[in-house]
Every structure is written in structure tokens, then in C-alpha cells.
Design a protein around this nucleic acid. Sequence first.
DNA 1: TATTATTATCGTAATATTGCGATATATAAT
DNA 2: ATTATATATCGCAATATTACGATAATAATA
Lengths: 107, 107
Amino acid sequence: MGVSKTHIFSEKHNQVASVAKVLSHPARVAILEYISRQEGCICNDLVDEIGLAQATISQHLNEIKKLGLIKGTFEGKNLCYCINQDTWDTLQNLFGEFFQNVKFNCC
Amino acid sequence: MGVSKTHIFSEKHNQVASVAKVLSHPARVAILEYISRQEGCICNDLVDEIGLAQATISQHLNEIKKLGLIKGTFEGKNLCYCINQDTWDTLQNLFGEFFQNVKFNCC
DNA sequence: TATTATTATCGTAATATTGCGATATATAAT
DNA sequence: ATTATATATCGCAATATTACGATAATAATA
């Protein structure tokens, strides 16, 4: 049928999956790292840096934004995206805990 | 066009994305946690535990296996899946580093 | 070797993702 | 207000993922 049955899984498992989904495309991983290296990055730079069309970059940015991992503010006529530290910490912990728990419980 | 341009990204970024992809479905997150809680788990248990068809569980297991996160051995007539500690550690580090680096570099 | 139980694979339908060109919207400067 | 530049959204085509029933393969036991 092709439609994920998210309702049969726990809140936690769905959360981990949601975070992972955003990181499951190399473009988004690259975007996040690039943003973190700049002090505020400009979307147009990303188009050159990453090598995908502007529309595609915008789409990827939107998926990252939906998770709350980045926030953008206008500086002059450019949009400056920045890592949202609070969300980042939360998701890092969520993920770290999952990895640690599974490892800890393992046979 | 709908085909990911993995070749334009760095090895590291593709690796992170590959790991994340496996964790990007709640069923696989749930499977990994369940396996870690048992000492060796049986695939048939998973069908009851998770609530997806046997064929679907098998598919998900295969994707986890392709990453090397689990290994299965036969015990009696049942397949016992176990977390592959080595791979787990490696991927945990890969992921942890990415999270940490981005946070560290952030404005 | 036949039987039974477990797991994997095949085929297929539904849905989701990726990518891009075209176009719309938004902001700054003129 | 008009123009120029930056970013977002729309529409579409190609491909990938998810799920399942049916069936094949595998392993233990009778």
C-alpha cells in the first residue's frame, strides 16, 4: 500500500525517525554543516556550494526548518540561516540516548 | 527528476545520510530497540511485537542488516538477531561527531 | 525423506521523495 | 513606485519507499 503506519509506533520511535529522516539526505547533512561553518549563511551561497538547483535547496532548507533545526533572519537583502541551538541540543540528546540505550541493552 | 545526486556529496556526508536513512523509519527504530532488549530476538516475535506483516518486517530487517547494524545466527530453528556492537559503535561515533561538530561551529 | 515452522524473496499497488524549470513573492536600493 | 536580487512555491516527471499476499527457501524434527 505504501503508506507508513506511524500510528502503531511509540512517540519516541516516531521522533527518532523524524530526526533521522531529515538527516537521511546528504544534501541536508551538507547544508547543516555548511551553515554551521559560516556565521549566518546565505541561501544563494548554498546553491553554489552544494550544486543543486535553487528550488531544490529551498525545499531541503524547508524540511530542515520544519524540524526547527535552523532559523532564518533577513540581513540586508539576504536570508541568514543559523543553527537553532536549543533544538539542536534536544535532538542531539534524543539521538544520543537512543544509540546509548540500544548499545547498553545489547546482549 | 527524482534521483538523488549522491556523487556530488562528500563521503562523510553520504555516510551520515545512509545511517540516518536506516533510522528514518519508526519500524526500524522499534526493531533495533526490541532486539537490544532481548538476548537474541526471533523474527516471528517482531511480527507480533511491531504489528507489520512478516514480509514487511523481513524487508526492514534487511535494510538494517545491509548497514551491518545487526547480525543473525540460527539457534534451533529460529533466527536470532543481535546488535553488531562494532558497527554500532562506529556509526554512533560518526553520528555523534556530526552533531557535535555542527554544534561546535555554530555562530 | 516428509512434515512443520520460520524467514526470505517476488510481484504489485499506493504513496513519498528528489529534482528542476517556471513563476511568484519578498526585500533593498534607486 | 520601479527595479534588481534573493528566496519560496507550483507543477511535473522520474525514482524510491512502504506494505502486503503469495510463494519459495531454509532448518529442525518426526
